[in-house]
Design a protein around this nucleic acid. Structure first.
Length: 509
RNA sequence: GCGGGCGUAGCUCAGUUGGUUAGAGCGCUGGAUUGUGGCUCCAGAGGUCGGUGGUUCGAAUCCACCCGCUCGUACCA
């Protein structure tokens, strides 16, 4: 036996991990969601703009393309001119590139939105994919906190446009300057401590999952998880830890529902204790201004609140940061309760355009995790309830060209009347298979015309839904096959009218 | 990265103390029941037993290493 006759191994039908196929229901649900989000953004006066999935790697971030791969975390490849290109990992960095490149043509402040797939080359997990969709809005060239306040309000409106009730979500607002100020005050300022500051921020970011005690461990010596793995901490002493914990606890202290003053109370509380650095004071004043702005439009207390524990994407944010959080529990397919937490967030990134142009172009924006939010909404029953009706199936009794032409003509007539319709394309010789197909596909109606009906100028139309009910009572096979449940005979000239009538009756009942 | 669990047909799994051509159910395809969804019956396709090396007369089974999946943890501009 030569190698030629040896069977070649077949490729395995499998997806790269962290990627997923989208079903018809997912696609339709996403389209519906995106339509609602878009309507809100348009109403706020934002215009769409789109950038491609690939960017030159240096435009995305901070990398040196002189290694085998520019950076973990992004998918990169080398173009035929040996330049490194990467798939975008968010929509903000490409927007900064677009604005920098077209700065002379764009009227600032530039209010813009876009949706698109982003890619992260990271280890995936449940609900975490390596390709997912984001929907972003940004205001570029707006230095004032009113732009940040408006973003938070638009996020709130978007949540409600998606059917999430007030009280089922909250927009939390913080300011990076506040935490930076505190860290400066406890001796973590300066270049030397950049690494420790990052460790501190990461520890705070885990508050939701690990609780206050877990964060305390991570701020100190470190934490040992249940698998025995040890995470080194920031190595702060007790006084420093208490100082940081007291600020992130401030939001909880002011959780009593005493109405619209909540955010102002939090800010006042923080001003009393944490205004010992210039940076921190500036941050708190900005937070106070945002609180006053959202309160003026009546978004305070139950929709947008100040919360000093919000950290967000650490690298490029320079001022206010905000995060949309779902407050209800979601039960997944396995019946487990999942806390969805953050479904979107953003903040001010004053330095991103400057990377390209050297000029200050302050900007603020946010991103909605469409895929994540969709699975939450799906579980909540807010989407996919009104299903698309499957097509009417025109069955095939005779497979010669002339007969096929007649069936095709019926199908076209239905389509011309605006009815979803298809002619059976499988093995027509097994009529049972045709109805089985119609059944599984969820077809509402099957159209049947054999030689008997044709000779009489008739057509049988079968109500698949009614037929299923009637068939359930039948036991013997002979009877079952003879019964033709749910079926009526009509004049073939009345096909379209009768189908429309039946569809309307099904939709009504 | 680190730690735990798991790899046999498209899916869910069985496979004796190591023993001959590796099985089942579901699904798929074709057929029977005059031209009707469920039911029943017949037939068929589908497997480098995750990979490589070793022990052995003989390995899906035992050993080593590797790979993959999965859960936790870390990372996530």
């Amino acid at each position: 036996m030569s190698a030629k006759t040896k069977k070649q191994p077949r490729p395995k039908a499998r997806l790269p991990r962290g990627f997923t196929d989208r079903t018809a229901a997912d696609i339709r649900a996403t389209d519906e969601m995106m339509g609602r989000i878009r309507a809100v953004f348009e109403r706020y006066g934002f215009d769409p703009v789109e950038t491609p999935a690939f960017e030159y790697t240096d435009a995305l971030g901070k990398f040196l393309p002189d290694q085998d791969r520019p950076n973990e975390g992004v998918f990169s490849l080398q173009d035929d001119d040996e330049q490194w290109m990467s798939l975008r990992y968010d929509l903000t960095a490409p927007l900064a590139r677009h604005v920098a490149q077209n700065i002379n043509r764009i009227a600032l402040p530039y209010r813009t939105y876009r949706a698109g797939w982003v890619f992260r080359n990271e280890k995936p997990g449940p609900g975490r994919f390596r390709q997912f969709m984001q929907f972003d809005a940004d205001t570029v060239g707006a230095p004032g906190v009113q732009a940040d306040a408006e973003m938070a309000m638009m996020m709130a409106d978007t949540m409600e446009a998606l059917g999430i009730k007030r009280g089922d979500y909250v927009i939390r607002v913080n300011n990076r300057k506040v935490l930076d100020g505190v860290m400066e005050a406890i001796g973590l300022g300066g270049e030397d401590n950049a690494g420790r500051r990052l460790t501190v921020l990461r520890a705070i970011d885990k508050l939701d999952r690990l609780g206050i005690e877990g964060v305390r461990e991570l701020l100190g010596e470190g934490r040992c998880d249940e698998s025995g793995d040890f995470t080194p901490g920031a190595g702060l002493d007790r006084k420093q830890i208490d100082r940081i914990l007291s600020i992130i606890a401030a939001a909880r202290i002011h959780k009593e529902p005493d109405g619209s003053k909540k955010s102002q109370n939090t800010v006042d509380f923080l001003l009393e204790r944490f205004s010992d650095t210039k940076l921190g004071l500036e941050g708190l004043r900005e937070l106070g201004a945002i609180g006053a702005l959202v309160e003026a439009s009546d978004y305070a207390s139950d929709r947008i609140i100040v919360d000093p524990s919000v950290v967000r994407g650490l690298e490029y944010y320079t001022g206010p940061v905000y995060e949309a959080e779902l407050l209800f529990d979601v039960v997944n397919e396995k019946g487990e309760t999942v806390q969805f937490g953050s479904v979107g967030g953003g903040g001010r990134y004053d330095g991103l355009v400057k990377r390209f142009t050297g000029q200050d172009v302050p900007a603020t924006g946010f991103s909605i995790g469409v895929s994540r939010l969709m699975s939450a909404l799906k579980n909540l029953g807010k989407l996919g309830t009104d299903e698309v009706v499957a097509p009417v199936l025109v069955t095939v009794m005779d497979g010669d060209t002339e007969a096929l032409g007649r069936y095709q003509q019926m199908t076209q007539k239905l389509r011309e009347a605006g009815i979803r319709a298809e002619m059976y394309q499988g093995n027509w010789k097994k009529f049972g298979n045709q109805l089985r197909y119609a059944d599984r596909r969820g077809c509402p109606i099957a159209i049947i015309q054999g030689s008997d009906e044709r000779a009489a100028g008739k057509i049988q139309i079968k109500d698949m839904i009614e037929g299923r009910k009637e068939a359930a009572a039948i036991e013997s096979n002979e009877e079952y096959r003879a019964a033709r449940p749910g079926q009526i005979e009509i004049d073939q000239d009345d096909l379209v009218a009768e189908v429309m009538k039946l569809l309307a009756a099904q939709a009504g009942g």
